[in-house]
Simulated scan of single mutants.
Amino acid sequence: MNLKKMKMAYKRYVKNFDDSLNDVRAKYDEAKLEIVSLVESNAVDQDHKLLNRMYKISSYWLEVWKNEVLIKEGVNPMGLKHIQQVTFYQCMCRHIYKDRYPEMKVIDYSFQNSIVSIVHFNLFGWAKEEQIFFDFIVKYLGDNLMEANDWNQHIWFLVELYLQYTNQTIEGTNKYVHLAVKSALTDREQPCGLIPEELGIYREVLEQWNTPDVDEITHLIGRMSEHHSMLASELGKSLEFGNYDYAFYPYEILYLLHVRKKQGLPNPSRFDDFLMNSPEAKMNIQDPEPYPEWDPVLRMIDDFYRKNYPEYIPNHHGVLFE
């Protein structure tokens, strides 16, 4: 691995969020004005705009998170929690339009983001919302609400690890899940050509993730970290970990450490590599993590859908995120 190249990429990663919070806040405020207008006029005929503006809420909290952790080198994951909550509600609101606008594309709405969010729900200990989210993913996997044609190996690693840890299945299995999903989507003539055939280092980790041998898991995590770091070094390119949202946030490794800890398995006491000592890897995540205070714009959107759509999924589950 080219350490110099990786550190240069990291500097660009941090710089990307330096002094940008005010600009994103302005876009958030602009979206808020439009959302308030739609909600106050109860504009049901135009309410798909509420869903299409939700990414601005997520973008704002991404900036808050990066400003706190990367720029100030703090340890508070508040912004990260808000991002995952917005992803949940993007799915819940997208469900409203599954028949009315079946081909509607929503910014930042993807299978990848959904998997990232559900493992964070598990990491945070948000059990009620996690189960609702999991049921949604399984029910709509592959169709217009949850297209699963995803080429990211680490995402399929997270899917399989999550299923094995929680003792659940997708397409009847929790092993080689990417291949089972690919086969099922092929049979249903749904897009699946990008789903990888192999998972590389992640397959090796899946075979040994619950080993009691701390030296063995330390070695595997080291290889995962090197793999992640090499891809993050290509910041800005179309590669795994090449985007500015999570490039140097090793959430797949942190989730592995979490599930091992919950299973009573030993984890390394320290890490020597750059990635695992980055500010985002050092965040203080409690067990369980308290729910964030509601974003007022997101709360407004949730209240609107609860009022106007009896079929809105959160209506069937009472109070959420409190």
Rank of each mutant, 00 (worst) to 15 (best):
2 N>F: 11
6 M>K: 09
6 M>Q: 10
7 K>W: 11
9 A>W: 02
9 A>M: 02
9 A>D: 02
13 Y>Q: 07
16 N>G: 09
17 F>C: 05
23 D>C: 14
25 R>E: 10
27 K>G: 11
27 K>L: 15
29 D>H: 13
31 A>W: 04
33 L>C: 03
39 V>C: 03
40 E>V: 12
41 S>H: 06
42 N>V: 08
45 D>Q: 11
49 K>H: 04
55 Y>D: 05
57 I>D: 00
58 S>E: 09
62 L>T: 10
64 V>E: 11
68 E>Y: 00
70 L>D: 03
73 E>Y: 15
78 M>C: 13
79 G>K: 00
86 V>R: 00
86 V>P: 01
90 Q>S: 01
91 C>I: 10
92 M>H: 00
97 Y>M: 06
99 D>E: 13
100 R>L: 14
103 E>C: 15
104 M>C: 00
112 Q>D: 10
115 I>T: 05
115 I>W: 12
115 I>M: 13
116 V>P: 05
116 V>K: 09
118 I>H: 07
119 V>I: 11
123 L>H: 10
124 F>E: 05
125 G>M: 00
129 E>K: 06
131 Q>G: 07
133 F>V: 06
137 I>E: 02
138 V>A: 10
143 D>G: 04
143 D>N: 04
144 N>D: 04
144 N>H: 15
150 D>Q: 13
152 N>W: 12
154 H>T: 08
155 I>K: 00
157 F>P: 11
161 L>C: 09
162 Y>T: 15
164 Q>C: 06
166 T>E: 13
166 T>H: 06
167 N>Q: 14
169 T>P: 08
170 I>P: 03
171 E>T: 02
174 N>F: 01
174 N>H: 04
184 A>N: 00
185 L>P: 12
185 L>A: 07
186 T>G: 12
186 T>I: 07
188 R>S: 05
191 P>V: 05
191 P>A: 07
192 C>G: 08
195 I>M: 07
196 P>I: 06
201 I>R: 05
202 Y>L: 11
206 L>K: 06
206 L>E: 02
211 T>N: 04
212 P>I: 07
213 D>A: 11
219 H>E: 15
225 S>H: 07
228 H>N: 15
230 M>V: 15
230 M>P: 07
232 A>F: 15
238 S>G: 11
240 E>T: 09
253 I>K: 00
255 Y>M: 11
255 Y>T: 00
260 R>C: 01
262 K>C: 08
264 G>P: 11
265 L>I: 03
267 N>V: 11
268 P>D: 09
270 R>G: 03
270 R>D: 14
270 R>I: 04
282 K>A: 06
283 M>R: 03
285 I>K: 02
286 Q>A: 03
289 E>F: 07
291 Y>G: 00
300 M>K: 08
306 R>Y: 02
306 R>E: 05
310 P>H: 06
310 P>G: 02
313 I>T: 05
315 N>A: 04
316 H>Q: 12
316 H>I: 12
